[in-house]
Amino acid sequence: MSDYIISVKELTKCFGDFTAVNRISFDVQRGEIFGFLGANGAGKTTAMRMLCGLSYPTSGSGTVAGWDVMREGEQIKRHIGYMSQKFSLYNDLTVWENIRLFAGIYGLSKAETEKRAAEALERLNFSSERNTLVGSLPLGWKQKLSFAVATIHRPKVVFLDEPTGGVDPITRRQFWEMIYEAADGGTTIFVTTHYMDEAEYCSRVSIMVDGEVRALDTPARLKEQFAAESMDEVFRILARGAKRGE
């Protein structure tokens, strides 16, 4: 197996006559923080669903965490982590119960759950809060906790959906620090977002327009290529030409 955690070729998804995702190809390396951007309606969500094993592509080929995207959706689901800003943890369960719940969902044994949960709490300096209701935690803590929960089964790749929208700047930095740490430890991070300042944190970024990947490179090189000051500008240059009005 190569060092690519995600590798897709000519991935296509059609809904009737409508081609939501049109032959996208890219590879994501181990330990990379990969930004997956696109305007509303560019096909970002559809592509993401295929990569997470939630829907099968119409045509194309590829693997995610070593499993075939065309056939092994169930396996993919089990071997990836997923975290979204909107839904992540149950507010009316305690920290510990949340961890146990998600560990259970991913089929970890009881002993393993105990061990990893203790480790995770230790790493986050959360051990004293294990019986606190998640709902009463400050937002920043919740986010760190939900990342810990999303990676409790040690997935090779974690999908993050707009992880830091609306979060205060300090919490946000703490969160990215955590992501850097995870990536440094070999976990691949796949970030979908339409906030361009989140894109700046990624090691490589792809931008989808009208169902196709129009640009894929490091933020620095993209900015150079489009003679832009920021990713925001790069994105605007690319997305202005979008034909899909949604």
Binding site: E177, Y180, E181, D184, D197, E200, P219, A220
Partner: peptide
């Protein structure tokens, strides 16, 4: 390696604070 850089920079002399800021 941005993460190692962050850890190292924080330990360096004269650095009051260091935090991720995009690229």
């Amino acid at each position: 390696n941005m993460y190692q850089l962050l850890l190292a920079a924080r330990k360096a002399n004269g650095v009051r604070e260091c935090y991720p800021f995009g690229e």
